[in-house]
Design a binder for these strands. Sequence first.
RNA 1: CGGGGCGUAGCGCAGUUUGGUAGCGCACUUGGUUUGGGACCAAGGGGCCGCAGGUUCGAAUCCUGUCGCCCCGACCA
Length: 479
Amino acid sequence: MAEQKKMVNDITSMDVDFSQWYTDVVRKAELMDYSSVRGMMEIEPYGYAIWENMQKDMDSRFKEIGIENVYMPLLIPESLLQKEKDHVEGFAPEVAWVTYGGHEELTERLCIRPTSEVLFCEYYSKKIRSYRDLPKLLNQWCSVVRWEKTTRPFLRSSEFLWQEGHTVHETAEEAEAFTLKVLEIYRDFYTETLAIPSVTGRKTEKEKFAGAVATYAIEPLMHNGVALQGGTTHYFGDGFAKSFDITFTGRDNKVTYPHQTSWGVTTRMIGAVIMVHGDDNGLVLPPKIAPVQVAIIPVAQHKEGVLEKAAELKSRLSKEFRVKLDDSDNSPGWKYAQYEMQGVPLRIEIGPKDIENSQCVIVRRDNREKIFASLDNLEEIIAKTLEDFQAAIYNKALENLHSKTFAATSYDEFLHTAENKPGFIKAMWCGSDECEEKIKNDTGGVKSRCIPFEEEHIADTCVCCGKPAKHMLYWGKQY
RNA sequence: CGGGGCGUAGCGCAGUUUGGUAGCGCACUUGGUUUGGGACCAAGGGGCCGCAGGUUCGAAUCCUGUCGCCCCGACCA
């Protein structure tokens, strides 16, 4: 794909400063603003509309497999949080506490949920009696608070929106299978809806969730070669059930501990979309989640009949697509720039000349290709173009993933790649925490991403210590 | 928590070295001309110069203290 001329000067070029580029895009696309609380952001209408589209798609996928939505409280009593030891230790450093109610100091402080495992567990301990009550498949859409030290819009904020699913199953096998089933939903959502390819697999012991037996993750790679943990699913075994006294009478009439899972994706996905698809002119949105799929821009709109025709087009196309007509006083050039920054997939220009010829001009956001389209079968052309668009940005992202994935068989090669080539490194690993720790320290932050489901055998020994290898790992720097 | 930087109009900044009563660009308001890649002209509105104290005839500017934010490192969806 040919390099595009940069049309917008308010956005720092990616190659100059990727971080600044990200911040510029987030702000110029009007996705969020900073609030007066450090690390907490105001999600603006356009940003929230993207989230709503993600939610809608994902929620229907959950419901298809029998998951129901609920809502649990915002606050967790300290005593409840402390019931599972690993879990509380994992989250303690980043929870916020409520200590006063009105003017009264509380007898027990309440934490603002950083995640709701314990609340679901408390609920489940009351509701589950028999194997007939299982499985329980619940999810909630809410926000959680984690007191982060460094924050970035959508990637790491002190409060973020997410969905958290919590399920309870009769057997370990069923629970573990469910964990993978949800991971597959995430993978498919990233691929089909967000047009983002990824690597999926299991996290190492060191990287897994606090309190989990196993954690699985989806790991997309950003344009600059930095990974982002895009979603996780956790298998808990019966550890939480034991801590929270969740039991049921089994088919054999014995009291049994059930097996649990939890899983979540967050508004971080918006950050992923920005950093995978965006370019120097701003955001590029996958058509399936774009709040506006087609922006209609009248040209010479003061002239007789132009606005009327544009409005007619809008009401006609709105039957099939998400359409916005911009009839404001801004110049057409200003509007082009505006909708490019906001990542609107297609814009339609319609002016006196077009009307005369019964046509309009469609311009693609991803490659700026111009299509002169007859008004007769416009719906067809737009539908086809949006489909092509979705596929094109996926392929571009896939190409980026492939071109930034490297293999290393010796430690020197590993260090050299980590230093010089941003991206994933595939390498063998002995299974020890020590080697993970050493690699992280030697490289300034390269961590294990996941053990992929289909491991390649690229060497016999651990890339770090030289002992016999147990697994192939994906490694990389992460946000 | 360590290192660096910054607080002046809604936003981005200049002015601080050498003290003299507040300025630029964008945005905003009104009117007019424009309109196929961020239009132009004219007229306007908007500031306890982060906060507190001090020095001085006089402080955005000098001194002391304080609060906040951003960036880079260790921890995290």
